[in-house]
Design a protein around this nucleic acid. Structure first.
Lengths: 228, 228
DNA sequence: CGTCTATTTGAGTTAGCTCAACCGTCGTGG
DNA sequence: CCACGACGGTTGAGCTAACTCAAATAGACG
């Protein structure tokens, strides 16, 4: 099931000491870089690690036997990926660009919280936040049309990574059209056509295929009808 | 924003004592019944409680301004609903049939875990399980066709509440066609047609609209292509 | 400069939607 | 007791948004 080996960053793992506090936590985690296109983990692997994104963007996805793929989420800096309920990963996770992550050994906190209860609390808060995002995602996949989905997607990115320049807000889109399509449950052609329509309507500008500038923020928000 | 009042079950709430252990937990939670069609909570309400389903089935859903609705999940006995990341509920939750729940005061464990760390662990495990279910749900909404979605849905119910009788496994479907449609991102007509097709193909039997018997389990599983 | 890959654009097809009719069950009231 | 209307589910017919397939375009890279 392995595409690339996701665990060889952790060869010199230290033994786990009896107590664990915030400032020694660093000893039980390590920072590493995953190169563009490489996997953090694959579906079916033992879920031994949890990853916190420091830099770059990852993609978590699942594939059906016939190759149909659904992208669950894009993980941006601050996001946590790799939580499992049964000790196995149930999705693939790949680096979309050059990604720096902090890797935590699962057994130091996950499923056994004796050492540091607050880490569990942080984890739960994070899970609750992610579940909320997932509910927004359900709304898109189940009930919004193509243009609304693309608009919603752009609004989420706008609020998360938009850089305000005078009247427009711009940001990079590190993922391919194919990634966006598989995230939104559409095809690359429909993504392209929707972006073109938004551009022709003057809502956005596309300096290049991997960068967007939002010209009419409120129009985009109206289209996306995102919560909050 | 209220449809029905979801909080009047908790009029005689007790003050929170300083310590909290498993056997006194009952004091900080209470069991109550929510009647068919009534709400446990609504989007926008203060998320003061978390609910564990004891009996019956609940539906969590979101609606867009124009009335389009997406059902996020059906909560069966053992499931927990009402987790929030920011102190507000972001979905509606309603009783599909007569529902018995245990209501926990959020502040006794959620977001402040000083008293009982293990409750947080249970919560996190539950959240991880639910996130896994949600990922299956994404696959359905984004990448499966109507028949596959209905088959997947039936397989999940089959594994969860199926009662095996000789060669077939049967279970009740407490939710309406409209609920199923809004869960699967389809219309009631498409649900009906898909069920009829499965019946005509001999995969299932429908003694009445709210009960299914699975005749060809493996055929249904093949169609649904569920993970695990 | 040519090849490769990602994206955009165009044209025709189709799965699922919309709208409408129909059917069975249930509760209500004359 | 039965007629009636309301409601939930099923079935049919036509429509349309998004898909599929195909071609054109544009960068990126050796």
């Amino acid at each position: 099931m392995y595409v690339t080996s996701p665990v060889d960053y952790f060869e010199n793992a230290q033994p786990i000491p009896p107590t664990w506090s915030e400032d020694v936590a660093a000893e039980f985690s390590c920072v590493t870089t995953i190169h563009t296109g490489h996997s953090l983990f694959c579906e079916g692997d033992d879920a031994d690690f949890v990853y916190k994104i420091i830099e770059g963007v990852v993609r978590t996805s699942k594939v059906l036997m016939d190759g149909r793929r659904q992208v669950m989420a894009f993980g941006y800096p601050g996001d946590i990926v790799g939580l499992s309920h049964d000790g196995l990963y149930h999705s693939d996770c790949d680096a979309i660009d050059e990604v720096k992550v902090r890797i935590y050994r699962k057994n130091t906190f996950n499923m056994s919280f004796d050492e540091e209860p607050d880490f569990c609390g942080q984890m739960l808060r994070h899970a609750a936040t992610e579940m909320n995002d997932m509910q927004e995602h359900f709304m898109m996949l189940g009930r919004k049309n193509a243009l609304e989905r693309v608009a919603s997607f752009l609004v989420v990115l706008l609020d998360r990574v938009g850089e305000k320049h005078d009247c427009t807000t711009c940001f990079d889109i590190p993922m391919s059209r194919s990634d966006i399509a598989d995230f939104l449950g559409l095809t690359i052609e429909t993504i392209s056509r929707s972006l073109t329509k938004l551009r022709k309507d003057g809502v956005i500008d596309l300096p290049n295929p991997h960068r967007v500038c939002i010209c009419k923020t409120s129009a985009l928000r109206d289209l996306g009808e995102n919560d909050l």
